[in-house]
Nucleic acid binder design. Structure first.
Lengths: 247, 247
DNA sequence: CGCGGCATTGACATTGATCAAAAGCTGTGG
DNA sequence: CCACAGCTTTTGATCAATGTCAATGCCGCG
């Protein structure tokens, strides 16, 4: 690691969420210790940078996969829409995460859309797989990321199957807090970039129920919404307990 | 592949679900084409065979991970139990699948219990990871299996979030049919090894609701339960459509 | 100012959970 | 073979939670 040129070293630090592509893929996959400067140029060469506006689609379910994306800024929702229009968000991905990695017969399994404005690096799936063949540390980090994603999916299943509406919304805030804390350190307040409809689509609830549940959490003093976008986490332990969220 | 000794070749065939450990891990991870006879002894050396009776626990959430399991016979449920006793099954694994692979800080994230009598091979997690470091094909197959598992988890999230009770039960039968079909070829009937309570814990419903939903599916002619354990899939397309199940 | 989008609130309908009882099924012992 | 105990499943009656529909409020923006 110490042999890396200073600028590249900077990009590889875990904290450099918004660094160019070489840094961001290393960071996402916890590869900082695994990469050497010899491998770095290949990673740099893989991807190009792109950005999307709120509500833009990054990829659609069923489209042929050519690339996946490493988010460097913003929030992406992974979702499935039923034939009759019911929509379910199955995962949320923030800066540092990869999206568009799941496939079914070479096609995207779910849809990805930008919840906020989003910046990401696009990587050729084919070239990434080739690289992973040659660098075991990259493959190991990919598996690690997939394991983490699956743990989160399992926890969401448990929340949806067994929690009532207000508990689910508490789960949502506890999880958002954890996601932000893991990236930006412990925080008392965070931007609520999702509207009621998106929260409902994530938790399997309607807009109205989300609204009423948020009101209950405010009344219990667990959160407050001082203005517009900002949520203040007043009592994270209470939120976690109510939402059965294990940190 | 052709250079393998006949008996080992036999174990490596995808169809050999109940083959000894060397075969089963190869099959699970779709490694048949990737392994060479030189690598095989190392895989064989990894694991020992064990079995469990119905209701036995394979591993508990929070226990330190030492090994994971490749199922060779039976059905395993992966679940989480909340502090107040509410339980949610987050995944079902059949012969050919691996369980106990997910971890959080070196501990099992979920609980695994035997729904039927189960046979499985136990593999040292540490030695498997070392092996994956050396054999890219093994790492790639692991990632492939994780991607598939995560797709299934996302589909379950969508079902739980957006389907009503009878639709969820239709989803359940459609998925069980797909799981069996992918292993044993297309089948018109299958053993229903789970009782109403376990189905409810998988779908986030109560015993009574599951019972009533099954009655509705029978009345609509989508399934029938001729005796005891056996479910006959009378109309798989209807089941898939009702359960929003994409094969 | 007035418009459009989102959020809140209220009234009501529906779904599924809960509680309770009856009906099947299975295995055991007489 | 029958009787019985212990279990699971089914069925029914009721209740609580959440969805649905409609009206109103809030806020930013042209």
């Amino acid at each position: 690691m110490n042999s890396l040129p200073p600028r590249l070293y900077e990009q590889l630090r875990p904290e450099s969420l918004s660094a160019p592509c070489a840094g961001c893929i290393g960071r996402s996959l916890n590869l900082c210790g695994a990469l050497t400067d010899a491998q770095l140029p290949e990673l740099v060469a893989l991807g190009g940078r792109r950005h999307w506006r709120r509500r833009d689609i990054l990829f659609r379910a069923g489209d042929p996969i050519t690339s996946f994306f490493k988010i460097t800024r913003g929030l992406v929702a992974i979702s499935r829409t039923l034939d009759d229009g019911r929509r379910q968000i199955v995962a949320l991905r923030l800066a540092g995460d990869c999206v568009g990695f799941l496939h079914t017969d070479g096609r995207y399994t779910f849809e990805g859309h930008a919840v906020t404005d989003v910046e990401a690096c696009a990587f050729s799936r084919r070239r990434f797989d080739e690289l992973a063949q040659r660098y075991p540390a990259l493959a190991a980090a990919t598996a690690e990321a997939l394991v983490r994603a699956q743990r989160e999916a399992g926890e969401l299943v448990a929340a949806m199957g067994r929690l009532r509406s207000t508990e689910r919304v508490a789960f949502f805030f506890a999880r958002m807090h954890a996601l932000h804390a893991s990236r930006f350190g412990d925080v008392r307040s965070l931007d609520l970039d999702m509207n009621r409809g998106e929260i409902g689509d994530y938790l399997g609830l309607t807009i109205e129920t989300v609204s009423r549940s948020i009101a209950k959490l405010k009344k219990r003093g667990l959160i407050s919404l001082p203005h517009g976008n900002e949520v203040v986490i007043e009592n994270i332990d209470g939120l976690r307990q109510l939402g059965k969220f294990t940190p």
